[in-house]
Nucleic acid binder design. Structure first.
Lengths: 190, 190
DNA sequence: TTTAAAAAGTGATTTAGGTCACTCTTAGCT
DNA sequence: AGCTAAGAGTGACCTAAATCACTTTTTAAA
């Protein structure tokens, strides 16, 4: 477990510097959680008490439409943050599902703890600011890819950008992430 | 102009509190800029020196694909921030265009000034952290809408969410924002 | 190690939305 | 006021991708 905390500290220190005292303070605001494949981290209608930093494992965040079809908002693995950010931020019931594609371990951060850290340790505020900014930039690029590219070139782009992910995730989920049917995806590439 | 600065201060103070001294410090990091309709704020290939807070007016941020078709990433008006965030963050040449749909006024913030403020005034770091987080949440919802909704329901959704915007923007640009052709949009709604 | 379930491939058919071509309308100019 | 250009509507046709139905392959679990 100490090793897991070291990983988290490294994750912070890639972006900002923390003194040992600051780190001890930060560390004390996280809880550990472990889930098996197929277990839920977040469910529609349930409280979203935390955002999660993934120590190891792989999850998918998705919503289900009226026809029961799954639409994948995000895959998240080691070193990624995941939550229903909207519900979390407003402390409202979940609007999406997040479940494990592999056995996974997490550090959990409550809204209260996050805000406390951000207002007591400026480096933490800057850490989350910069992380959030990077996330924003990524989502903008995904939107542009949805607007400007064909499904096939989005697939090729993803193959290049996250080859490791493709290996770990069934193609039908990739299809759902790209906004294309699994049959159509299966006819690409070859 | 003093009034414009007051608007910006209000914008900050909706999220965080600033002392008068802090505000004077913050204020000194912004430059004023004014553009007429059709003028460019950002162009592909040009340096992106600033992010812009819009005092008044309306701009569109868009990219142009190989076929010359315009894809709108964002509309931004009074009280919104706009930039080519990706190029700005990495201090690289612009990858999108931003131009004015109406005469507009801006406060301009350089990366250096933003980072300086964020590391000297924790409230400013928290301001941008929270803003960025809201932006992230909005983009996630836009992605979900692109994945789960038909073009027609995206249009209805936008009509509800930003009715004022629709009035100020030609329908063909709305179409481009929604990822649908102007002919198809014109056949909706009735 | 066999059995069930999940994943993946593939043909046939349908459909939402794109494209093209043209008309009508509205908004800025000078 | 009159002219040009941008915006918007609409019919005809086309196409990328969805859907449906079924088979084959792979994975996991009893």
């Amino acid at each position: 477990m100490q090793n897991n905390y070291n990983l988290l500290r490294q994750h912070f220190e890639e972006i900002v510097s923390l003194t040992d005292d600051e780190w001890d303070f930060v560390k004390s605001h996280f809880e550990y959680k472990s889930l098996k494949k197929h277990q839920f981290l977040i469910q529609v209608g349930q409280p979203v008490a935390f955002e999660y930093w993934i120590i190891n494992g792989l999850v998918k965040a998705y919503s289900i439409d009226e026809k029961g079809k799954e639409h994948i908002l995000q895959f998240a693995m080691e070193n990624y943050w995941v939550s229903d950010h909207c519900a979390f931020q407003h402390q409202e019931p979940g609007t999406i599902f997040v479940d494990c594609l592999e056995d996974s371990e997490f550090f959990c951060l409550s809204l209260e703890n996050r805000e406390k850290m951000c207002f007591e340790v400026p480096a933490v505020a800057n850490f989350f600011r910069i992380k959030s900014n990077h996330g924003y930039i990524n989502l903008q690029q995904r939107i542009l890819s949805l607007l400007t590219m064909t499904a096939e070139s989005r697939y090729e782009y993803l193959l290049n950008k996250l080859p490791k992910l493709i290996q770990r995730v069934p193609k039908k989920l990739i299809a759902s992430y790209l906004g294309v049917s699994r049959e159509t995806l299966s006819r690409f590439n070859s």
